[in-house]
C-alpha cells in the first residue's frame, strides 16, 4: 500500500438536523484511484465534497470530525479554502465549461493565480489539454466557444482545466454518468493515465466502471461507510452481506 494522502477521522456531516454522513473514518492512498459506490442518497457525493470543502457553499451544513490532507486538518480555522481547492481539484458530474473559448476556459485557473504571460499561458494550456487527451481534437479551434464541444469533449476539457492549476488530488463526481460509452471509455483511459501522477477519488453509480478503473472501493449506505478495501476483494469476496447484495444488484 502506498502512502496515505487523505485521512478522515470520525467525519460526520449534518444538513440542519439531518445527519448525512455518520462518523466516517478512512484512509485514501496517494496516486491510486479510490472509488465510492452506493445507492443514490447514500452520502458518497457529499463525502467527496467534504474533501475540498465544496459543502461550505451550502447553507446549513455542519461538520464534525477531521479531514487530513497531507496530515493537515482542512477544517482547521487557519486553513485557506482557496488554496486548498487549488491543491484538491474537482471534476463535476455535468460538464460545466464557462461560456468562453476553449483557451480561456483552461487558462482561467492559471490566470486567477496571476499568470498573465501569454507564452506561459499557452504552454500550460497545451500541456493540460495533452494530459487530458483532448489536445489533438481541439488544437485548431482554441478560440471557439467551449460550448460547441461535444459532451465528452467538454468533460475532458473540464479535466484539463482542473489539471491546469496543478492539483495533487482530483475529485471526480460521476464524471462519465452523462456520457455515451465511447466518451466514457476515453475518460476511463484518462483516469488510468492520470493516476500515475495524481491521487484520484471518483464517485460512480456504475459498478462496472468502479471495477474497471479503481484500485480501492468504498461502499456507502445511508450515510455510513459499510465496507472499504481493494477493489478486487470488494467485488469478489466482500465481507459484509450488504455490500454483496448491492454489488450483485439485489438492491440499489
Amino acid at each position: 500500500m502506498k502512502e496515505t494522502k487523505i485521512k478522515t477521522r470520525d467525519l460526520s456531516l449534518y444538513y440542519g438536523a439531518k445527519m448525512a454522513l455518520n462518523s466516517i473514518t478512512m484512509d485514501i492512498p496517494e496516486k491510486e484511484v479510490t472509488a465510492f459506490i452506493g445507492p443514490s442518497g447514500c452520502g458518497k457525493s457529499t463525502f467527496l465534497r467534504t474533501l475540498n470543502r465544496m459543502n461550505d457553499l451550502i447553507p446549513g451544513v455542519r461538520i464534525t470530525g477531521e479531514v487530513l490532507v497531507d496530515s493537515l486538518n482542512i477544517y482547521d480555522k487557519q486553513i485557506d479554502v482557496v488554496n486548498l481547492r487549488k491543491k484538491v481539484g474537482m471534476v463535476f458530474q455535468k460538464s460545466n465549461p464557462f461560456a468562453k473559448s476553449i483557451f480561456e476556459n483552461v487558462a482561467y485557473g492559471p490566470r486567477i493565480n496571476g499568470i498573465n504571460n501569454k507564452t506561459k499561458l499557452e504552454e500550460i494550456v497545451e500541456s493540460s489539454l495533452k494530459k487530458a487527451f483532448i489536445w489533438e481534437e481541439v488544437k485548431d479551434r482554441m478560440n471557439d466557444s467551449a460550448m460547441a464541444l461535444s459532451g465528452g469533449q467538454q468533460q475532458r476539457m473540464c479535466i484539463a482545466r482542473t489539471l491546469a492549476v496543478e492539483p495533487e488530488i482530483i475529485l471526480m463526481d460521476e464524471p462519465a454518468s452523462a456520457l455515451d460509452p465511447i466518451s466514457t471509455a476515453k475518460i476511463e483511459e484518462l483516469i488510468h493515465e492520470l493516476k500515475k501522477s495524481y491521487t484520484i477519488v471518483i464517485v460512480t453509480h456504475n459498478m462496472q466502471q468502479a471495477a474497471r478503473v479503481s484500485d480501492l472501493t468504498a461502499f456507502f449506505y445511508l450515510g455510513e461507510l459499510i465496507e472499504y478495501g481493494k477493489t478486487r476483494k470488494i467485488f469478489t469476496t466482500p465481507d459484509k452481506k450488504h455490500t454483496e447484495e448491492y454489488i450483485t444488484g439485489r438492491f440499489g
Binding site: M54, L57, V82, F92, N96, C158
Partner: peptide
C-alpha cells in the same frame, strides 16, 4: 455549476 467550477479551481 459555473460558480462551482470556478471555486473548485481555487478562485476566490
Amino acid at each position: 455549476t459555473y460558480t462551482e467550477a470556478s471555486l473548485a479551481l481555487g478562485a476566490t
